[in-house]
Design a protein around this nucleic acid. Structure first.
Length: 695
RNA sequence: GGCGAGGUAGCUCAGUUGGUUAGAGCGUCGGAUUCAUAACCCGGAGGCCACGGGUUCAAAUCCCGUCCUCGCUACCA
């Protein structure tokens, strides 16, 4: 019997596997699971089964401006926010069977120390650029204001409630210093400009390192989506990036004169992988350093595609200039998962929340793991539907996997009172089937090691298919009538397949694997490991007493799917209702204010796309007064040829403004329909001539 | 607009150092079977491989152009 496993994968290897730190401003949903935690867990479990030395590391990301923002909104302290979500997240991961060796949090003392030391070392090496800029400062609160903490009038659309980073009325992205009449949301006072010093990581200096390491070194072993994204960033030109913020929530900048400043959350978060490893090692009485410093250790980051730049460019640059650390071997980032055709959204509550799933589908962790793996967004965005979830369960887990185990165990109990029979002479078919069985560990392992978990889930199912086919072909229930001796061999072979399934299913279906091991009495020292599947002649020895059959999976009824769909439908309705809440009336305008605005009816004469812009159309409008050029950001709602001749309402005396080099003399009045599509505001009867005053 | 990723069967996806009739699972239709959660097993139908050019003896695969989806980025009522 030849050992089909490759030599390299049989030698023990040290792995440090990280899963993106979840941000503690909301619970975990299926998008996070499919993209990061399920694949990372499958990979980690697989490597452990192969006997490798694995540190599977994660923790809560608890810094950043969004935490105090949320705290303020809910009227609680930032600490209460992070404690709440840290607990929800940690508990739901545990219930779900994500096998982290350590789940830490970035508010921990060990992390503060580690991140602080990391910064200090780079600072002492002179890696940072220091720069002084003017930022808005709240004199009453004695602190600088992050963009989100400033509101004011949007310079573009006049909305008086625009945030410092973005106007939610017109969608413009802004700088806080652009706002007219800025107001601090902390105290309501008017912020002033004040100089502040910050430290920047000069990414531009690391370009050649990144090009050599990734673009040349990982051209073939990194996923195309990851490689392409990285190349795109590098080719666009890297710029120095601020690694400090004026904020009172986070890790203080460990430098004299940096009071009131903290490390930028994206600087400290990935260091959390290191501190979490330290925490684990201390608890386990191990040395953490080889996991981060030994050249033979393989470091793998599991993340979603939104994190590519941080894990492929910024963090490796930090590790590299620090000097002591190894670089990631791979960053198998996944794309995004959608839910029933729409993007997942925490704020819109468009999600399947893990903690809710665990309550509503008790003891069905593996079903979700399987459904998310079989339909994982490995190469492109994918859609999760409850119908698919049901089909994966009923047609694959129940009908193929569960059914095979059930028939084998039921027959064994029926014919032999649960004792594994002594096989006779193997037929050609028996030998072929057993031979094929021995090839699965390698095939499955290959998929795992190439991060192709979707493929792995199908290969696993093929093991059960092999078993079902073997039983269908050999028909022991018929043979028992005239050749009971032969049936012993058949059942023995079928039991070997069941036994292999107990091991092979562990990475993807850990709960099922455990139940199956119990059923086959393969626990404790009876427990087989992955490598033995191909080398051992006998997986389940004759004479062994197994237990009676219990169902591994149960059907999911249409009513359960309907219930979940109804839940989402309700969310949609709630969102619609929320969108209907009309904006509050603005403060009173005098008649004089209104009469300043000169509104006229007009007609669009010409329309063309603004070159090199996505949203802009250049319009020629007959205003009755003249024919003038107006640049309007409506290109995503209308094609130029469709709006020629359209009657419109024009604000003609708006101060002219240059947009992308074209002078725009006026504004077309628009509103929006329920789908967010723009709609012209225009006279609804014909015969109104251009230039007619609107009053 | 720039850059990146994707566009293959009704659905979800494999498949590119170019090479015989393009694959899998699910769904569908038919057959067989009854040990098993009416499940399993066998077979059939179903594809101008987004579109248009080009290179080649040969293109899903390489080149050029176009369209669509997603992301980043620019820009924006």
């Amino acid at each position: 019997m030849s050992n089909t496993l490759s030599e390299t994968s049989n030698t023990t290897q040290r792995y440090t596997i990280t899963a993106a730190l979840p941000y503690t401003n909301g619970p975990i949903h299926i998008g996070h699971l499919a993209g990061v935690y399920v694949p990372a867990d499958i990979y980690s479990r697989y490597l452990r089964l192969r006997g490798h030395d694995v540190a599977f590391i994660c923790g809560s990301d608890e810094h950043g401006v969004a935490i105090p923002m949320k705290a303020k909104k809910e009227g609680v302290s930032p600490q209460e926010v992070i404690d709440k979500y840290h607990k929800i997240i940690k508990d739901s991961f545990e219930d779900f069977g994500i096998s982290f060796d350590n789940y830490s949090r970035t508010s921990s003392q060990i992390h503060h120390q580690t991140a602080s030391d990391f910064f200090k070392k780079l600072y002492d090496q002179g890696e940072f650029i220091e720069e002084v800029t003017e930022q808005l400062y709240d004199r009453e609160a004695h602190q600088f204001l992050a963009d989100r903490f400033v509101t004011g009038t949007c310079p573009r659309c006049g909305n008086e409630e625009a945030y410092g980073d973005q106007c939610e009325s017109c969608g413009s992205s802004l700088n806080a210093t652009d706002l007219i009449n800025p107001k601090s949301t902390l105290t309501g006072s008017k912020p002033v400009l004040k100089e502040t010093r910050h430290w920047f990581l000069p990414l531009d200096r690391y370009e050649s390192f990144l090009r050599t390491w990734i673009l040349e070194g990982h051209k073939n072993d990194w996923k195309p989506n990851v490689y392409g994204q990285v190349k795109s960033w590098i080719d666009e030109g890297l710029k120095p990036r601020a690694v400090t913020r004026d904020l009172d929530w986070g890790i203080p900048v460990p430098v004299a004169g940096a009071e009131g400043k903290v490390l930028y959350v994206w600087f400290d978060a990935p260091i959390g992988y290191i501190s979490s490893t330290k925490e684990w090692a201390a608890r386990e009485g191990k040395d953490w350093e080889p996991y981060w410093k030994d050249k033979n250790t393989k470091l793998v980051h599991f993340i979603g595609k939104d994190n590519i730049v941080f894990h492929c460019i910024i963090f490796p640059s930090m590790l590299n200039v620090h000097g002591d650390f190894i670089l990631p071997e791979n960053v198998p980032a996944n794309e995004f998962l959608n839910l029933e055709g729409n993007k997942l959204s925490t704020s819109k509550n468009w999600a399947v929340w893990l903690h809710e799933y665990l309550e509503e589908f008790p003891d069905k962790q593996d079903v979700l793991r399987y459904a998310l793996t079989a339909n994982a967004p490995e190469t492109k965005d994918n859609d999760f539907t409850w119908k698919d979830f049901q089909a994966r369960n009923n047609n694959e887990l129940v009908a193929i996997f569960g059914n095979f185990i059930n028939r084998v165990v039921v027959l064994t109990n029926k014919y032999y009172e649960g004792i594994v029979p002594e096989p006779g002479t193997f037929t050609e078919t028996d030998r072929e089937v057993l031979g094929e069985l021995k090839s699965f560990p390698e095939a499955l392992g290959n998929s795992m090691e190439r991060y192709r978990f979707r493929e792995a889930s199908q290969i696993l199912m093929n093991v059960a298919r092999l078993g079902n086919k073997y039983l269908a072909d050999e028909e022991p229930w018929k043979v028992i009538k005239n050749d009971p001796e032969r049936v012993k061999t058949i059942m023995y072979v079928a039991l070997q397949i069941a036994s292999a399934l107990a091991v092979l299913s562990e990475p993807i279906l850990p709960f099922t694997s455990e139940k199956l091991r119990k059923m086959l009495d393969q626990e404790g020292d009876q427990k087989l490991n992955w490598n033995e599947l191909s080398t051992m002649e006998t997986l389940l020895p004759a004479g062994k007493q197994i237990n009676t059959a219990t169902l591994l999976f149960t059907k999911i009824e249409d009513s359960e799917v309907a219930h979940q769909l109804q839940k989402l439908e309700n969310t949609k309705k709630m969102n619609e209702a929320a969108n209907k809440t009309v904006e509050p009336q603005k403060e009173t305008a005098t008649f004089e204010d209104f009469s300043k605005m000169d509104l006229r009816t007009g007609t669009i004469l010409e329309a063309e796309k603004m070159p090199k812009a996505n949203k802009l159309l250049i319009l020629k409008v007959d205003t009755g007064i003249d024919t003038r050029t107006i640049v309007s950001g409506i290109a995503q709602s209308f094609k130029p040829e469709d709006i020629i001749g359209k009657k419109v309402t024009v604000l003609v005396n708006l101060a002219p403004r240059k947009l992308r080099g074209v002078m725009s003399e006026g504004m077309i009045l628009m509103t929006e329909n329920a789908e967010g599509k723009l709609v012209f505001v225009n006279p609804d009867e014909d015969g109104v001539t251009n230039g007619t005053v609107i009053s």
